[in-house]
Simulated scan of single mutants.
Amino acid sequence: MSDRIVEFDIAVIGAGIAGLISAQSLRCLGHSVVVLEKSRGVGGRVATRRLYDTRADFGAPFLEPRGRLSQPLVQVLSRAGIVVPWTDTVYQVNEGDYPMNPAATLSAPYYVAPTGINAVGKFLARHLPIWHCRRVQTVTPTDQGKWHLELEAIAESKDAAVPLAVQAKAIVMATPAPQAVMLLESGESGLPGEFVDRLKAVEFDPCISVMAGYPASKQRELVQGEYRGRAVGFPPNSPLRGMFWQSSKSSDATQPVFVLHSSAQFAEQYLDATELEPVGRELCDWVGEAVFPWLKEPEWMQVHRWRYAFCRRPLTEPLLTTSTPLPMVCAGDWCGDRQIETALQSGLAAAEWVSDRLGGAPMPPLASLWEAIAQEK
């Protein structure tokens, strides 16, 4: 064990939406919290990448304000100028059917962040102590009634003062269930077998995301032609799940950028591929056949593989909890089937469960939580 140990009431593993909302709730209740995140950013699959003087949302493409929690969140973000309405129509490309047709008119528009959807994660991360580039290696109970977490400083983190261990009275595990299983089986956690088995039962589908940029002249063509296909779906048997006109999210975009999401069946073929550029080319070729021929020839392209993109077999409850040997709760968008709404519900429920186990105060109204987050920049 490391001799550099910092103690907190709660350690939150994962800075996705569920982990951030859980940590914020616990902080507002007066608990000392640390968020441990293996990457450099926050938000999980609410992710944006900077590339070629632009940005691309290569995970969640938008926010959908249709839930009990996501609707007030979008209202808060909208008042803060972080998100704006984007489109109220989803288009569909059917086999042998071009041009594409509107598939659905939404009761409320999708919202996007002109500066990148990761602005949502950054908002939820305000005021939180987040240790970036820290991978949790083992989780073990101590004789003093605390969890001991051994950490690894990822290569990107050069800070010599990075603590190498944390101890906490409780843990919120806010990672995809398969990642939680790998961590909890890597050491002597002392967790009940039934608890781990229920995590193992959760299954995910993968997705390959392609970010592709095209000549500036094509952006003018799209705007002048009043192209409306901001969000486009594809047939179930195609290699594509969706196409999103990224550059329509910002009024100052100078070149068209599209983000393609593959189907799960297509992504399954490339889970172990070391070279993803040919995979991206294949998807660009396919969307070029289905929508615009020039989409086959991007000026630049980046490809990202999501191993845990969409939960195929979710937990049917908002939480997975145990007090043996010590309090631990697993939460995330895999605790249901509504993605961001589920992540918010699960994260809040995790905070309430943990605070109750530690003898904390009851949860405050949601409005006061949003106010507390928004108060300071």
Rank of each mutant, 00 (worst) to 15 (best):
residue 310 F to V: 15
residue 81 G to H: 07
residue 286 W to T: 04
residue 252 D to V: 13
residue 297 E to R: 14
residue 299 E to P: 03
residue 32 S to W: 03
residue 163 P to N: 05
residue 311 C to N: 07
residue 129 P to Y: 03
residue 354 V to D: 03
residue 273 A to C: 12
residue 375 Q to R: 15
residue 165 A to L: 06
residue 262 S to G: 05
residue 46 V to I: 15
residue 372 A to K: 11
residue 146 K to F: 07
residue 78 S to H: 12
residue 280 G to Y: 07
residue 32 S to Q: 14
residue 316 T to C: 12
residue 160 A to R: 14
residue 302 Q to I: 11
residue 69 L to W: 11
residue 377 K to G: 10
residue 203 E to P: 00
residue 191 L to S: 08
residue 177 A to R: 07
residue 319 L to C: 09
residue 368 S to C: 08
residue 107 S to E: 12
residue 290 A to G: 01
residue 87 T to A: 07
residue 282 E to F: 08
residue 136 V to H: 00
residue 161 A to M: 10
residue 265 Q to K: 11
residue 130 I to K: 05
residue 18 A to W: 01
residue 166 V to G: 00
residue 225 G to L: 06
residue 322 T to V: 12
residue 299 E to T: 10
residue 207 C to I: 11
residue 344 L to K: 02
residue 167 Q to H: 02
residue 109 P to M: 09
residue 351 A to R: 01
residue 95 E to D: 13
residue 322 T to I: 12
residue 53 D to P: 02
residue 317 E to H: 11
residue 87 T to H: 06
residue 91 Y to N: 03
residue 277 E to V: 11
residue 84 V to A: 08
residue 323 S to H: 09
residue 338 R to H: 13
residue 344 L to P: 03
residue 83 V to N: 03
residue 249 K to N: 05
residue 53 D to E: 15
residue 16 G to K: 10
residue 129 P to M: 05
residue 199 L to Q: 02
residue 78 S to G: 10
residue 218 K to V: 03
residue 20 L to P: 02
residue 213 G to W: 07
residue 247 S to V: 11
residue 49 R to E: 15
residue 304 H to M: 13
residue 191 L to I: 10
residue 180 A to P: 04
residue 322 T to R: 08
residue 323 S to D: 15
residue 195 F to I: 05
residue 167 Q to P: 00
residue 344 L to Q: 03
residue 135 R to V: 03
residue 27 R to C: 08
residue 291 V to K: 00
residue 265 Q to A: 15
residue 26 L to G: 02
residue 161 A to T: 15
residue 70 S to R: 01
residue 331 A to I: 09
residue 27 R to V: 14
residue 13 I to M: 08
residue 305 R to N: 04
residue 290 A to Q: 15
residue 285 D to C: 04
residue 9 D to V: 06
residue 256 P to V: 02
residue 39 S to N: 13
residue 13 I to Q: 06
residue 48 T to A: 09
residue 143 D to P: 02
residue 140 T to M: 14
residue 213 G to I: 03
residue 347 G to A: 11
residue 332 G to A: 06
residue 101 N to K: 13
residue 90 V to G: 00
residue 59 G to F: 08
residue 176 P to M: 07
